[in-house]
Structure formats: structure tokens, C-alpha cells
């Protein structure tokens, strides 16, 4: 086993992420269309932006994939001319880093709903940190700020946790995940029989 990601892992991660990048380009206007409703309904769909990291990690299951995926998706969104401009890159880097750190804390050994949801929440925390400096969210009325954070947390669990797991489960049924995952001990055991 060589250290780091192989070209196959990188390319597959980036292709998945660029796909998500296209989706994010559509998600941006949707987000801004929901936003003027005012009571932060938009935050419920914010979780979509953390999803690339967990989906890519669940598919490839290697260290570094979550970070690369989030950065690649944000670059893709940026290069397609996102309404958010350069800030997507910064958010992507921070969100990817936070998700990666959490997955690292579990030593990249667990692929269940709990871990990916917590990884998503970690990205969410990163994005809130940036919002605090960039969007002055600390200057919202307190009840409004609580609503903002709560909606974003709920959306995060729905998208990065529940939806990501269900997508990857369906992908496993198609068999493509076997292409990109490294061979497990079980595979070697079957060979030895």
C-alpha cells in the first residue's frame, strides 16, 4: 500500500465532485429564491453543500477523500460562474477540512449514519464560523440567530447524513463501489479458500 491517494481515487473523487458542483450551481439560485421568505427557510437546504464530502468518503473510504471532494466541488461550482463567486472556494476548503478532521477522529474506520452526520455537522460548524466573520450573523436578533443555526443543523443531518447514506446504499447495489474501494480482508479470505 503506497501512501496517499492513487490517481484512480483522485479522478473518481473529482468526477463525483464536479457532478455535485453542477448541482450546486443550480442549488445557489434555489437557495436565494427561498431566502427572502425571511425566517431562514433557506438554511434547511444548506446541508446539500456539505454532502459531497460524505458521499465521496462513503464511496471510496480513504483518508483525504472528503477534503478533496469538498474542495473539488467548490472549484467546479466556482469555475461554472457561481453567484457566490470566490467565497465558495473558501467555504469549500473550510467545510472539507472540518469534515475530514472528524472522520480522522474516527480513524476512517466507520461508515455509518452517525459518523457521517457528525462529519456533516462539523462542516456545518466550519461554515457558521465563516458566516460569523463574513455575514455578521452574530448581529442578528437572538431568536433569529437560533432559528438560523437550528435550521442549518437539521438540514445538514438530512442531506449529509440520511440522503448521503441512502444514495451510497443504492450505489452499492449497482456494484460500482467495488471498483473503487480498496480490497478488504474479507476479499483476501475468499481468495484463500
Amino acid at each position: 500500500m503506497s501512501k496517499g491517494l492513487k490517481l484512480t481515487d483522485i479522478l473518481v473523487t473529482i468526477v463525483i465532485s464536479v457532478g455535485f458542483g453542477i448541482l450546486y450551481k443550480i442549488w445557489g439560485p434555489l437557495y436565494y429564491a427561498v431566502k427572502p421568505l425571511g425566517i431562514h427557510m433557506d438554511q434547511l437546504i444548506y446541508g446539500m453543500w456539505f454532502m459531497t464530502a460524505t458521499v465521496a468518503f462513503l464511496i471510496i473510504r480513504k483518508p483525504g477523500v472528503a477534503f478533496l471532494a469538498e474542495v473539488a466541488a467548490s472549484s467546479g461550482e466556482f469555475l461554472m460562474g457561481s453567484e457566490f463567486g470566490l467565497e465558495v472556494l473558501f467555504y469549500g476548503i473550510i467545510q472539507g477540512l472540518f469534515a475530514e478532521l472528524l472522520l480522522m477522529a474516527f480513524r476512517y474506520k466507520r461508515y455509518d449514519l452517525l459518523v457521517v452526520s457528525v462529519a456533516g455537522l462539523s462542516s456545518c460548524l466550519g461554515s457558521l464560523l465563516l458566516d460569523f466573520y463574513k455575514g455578521y450573523i452574530g448581529d442578528l436578533s437572538t431568536w433569529n440567530l437560533i432559528l438560523y443555526v437550528a435550521f442549518r443543523f437539521i438540514g445538514t443531518i438530512l442531506f449529509t447524513g440520511v440522503l448521503a447514506i441512502s444514495i451510497v446504499n443504492s450505489l452499492e447495489a449497482t456494484g460500482v463501489t467495488n471498483l473503487v474501494r480498496s480490497s478488504s480482508k474479507k476479499d483476501f479470505d475468499t481468495l484463500n479458500q
Partner: peptide, 17 residues
């Protein structure tokens, strides 16, 4: 999403090889 993703992964894998 599932057909789009699975086909993309297959294609990416072939190109990567």
C-alpha cells in the same frame, strides 16, 4: 442521481486506469 453517479464512476475508473 443513481444512474448518473454510477455511470460517471465507471467512466472515471476506466479513464484513470
Amino acid at each position: 442521481p443513481i444512474p448518473l453517479l454510477s455511470q460517471s464512476i465507471r467512466r472515471a475508473f476506466r479513464i484513470a486506469v
